[in-house]
């Protein structure tokens, strides 16, 4: 349930599984509405809807060891495993922790502080820092909570130590920001002339 207690929650969190939850919620809602509609129609008309004739005939000839039961069983196992994996696979954190200022703590209890930088922000900083390095023509960056990867395009014929300069420069910038821990920085350099 969504909170309604007027308290904050951690900003650095794992995915909230909104998509699978919404899909299952909509399916359950559809099933509930269909059941209500069928039973209300039965109470008003005195007979079950003709829509149920097909399932009724199917159930009447169904044997426990029939292929349909096997199919339903396998489908249920697969769906159950997917739902369990959706619930149990933790997923990546959405943000990276930043060290607090050295003189922090004025008016704030030490164990109640949280400073984060979103993965998207880290990627943006890495890309901007990379673009300032001599020899870099263009760059794109992706970031997770543990690593930053840069794809660099250069006009240089001999890329030489450009990859090292890029990773060192970006790592230095991320360290200066105070990311704790500093994510692993990698780069691929593509020569384009």
């Amino acid at each position: 349930m969504s909170r309604n207690d007027g308290q904050s929650t951690p900003l650095r969190r794992r995915p909230s599984r909104t998509v699978p939850a919404s899909i299952v919620g909509i399916l359950l809602l559809a099933a509930g509405v269909a059941l209500v509609w069928l039973t209300v129609a039965r109470l008003m008309d005195g007979t079950w809807s003709t829509l149920l004739q097909g399932p009724r005939d199917w159930l009447a000839v169904l044997a426990w060891n029939g292929p349909d039961v096997w199919g339903v069983g396998i489908a249920a196992v697969v769906v159950g495993l997917i739902l369990l994996l959706c619930a149990l696979i933790p997923g990546r954190f959405n943000a990276l922790t930043v060290r607090d200022a050295d003189d922090a703590g004025v008016g704030v209890r030490a164990n109640e502080r949280e400073t984060v930088m979103t993965s998207r922000a880290v990627a943006q900083v890495a890309k901007a820092q990379c673009a300032r390095i001599d020899g870099v023509r263009s760059a794109s960056a992706t970031a997770t909570d543990k690593r930053v990867h840069l794809s660099v395009k250069t006009s240089l014929r001999n890329t030489g130590d450009l990859s090292t300069r890029v990773t060192d420069g970006v790592r230095e910038r991320l360290n200066a920001i105070g990311l704790d821990p500093v994510p692993h920085v990698t780069a691929t350099v593509e020569s384009k002339r």
Binding site: M1, S2, R13, R14, P15, S16, R17, T18, P20, A21, V24, W64, N65, G66, V69, W70, V72, G73, I74, A75, A76, V77, V78, V79, G80, L81, I82, L83, L84, L85, C86, A87, L88
Partner: peptide
């Protein structure tokens, strides 16, 4: 967001559906 609620309900539904599927397969 409702992260904890989603994880809890998805896990409960997953266990129920998985158990029902396994029971059907064992029965078949």
């Amino acid at each position: 967001t409702a992260g904890t609620l989603n994880r809890t309900l998805l896990a409960i539904l997953g266990i129920l559906v998985l158990a029902a599927g396994l029971a059907l397969l064992l029965q078949a």
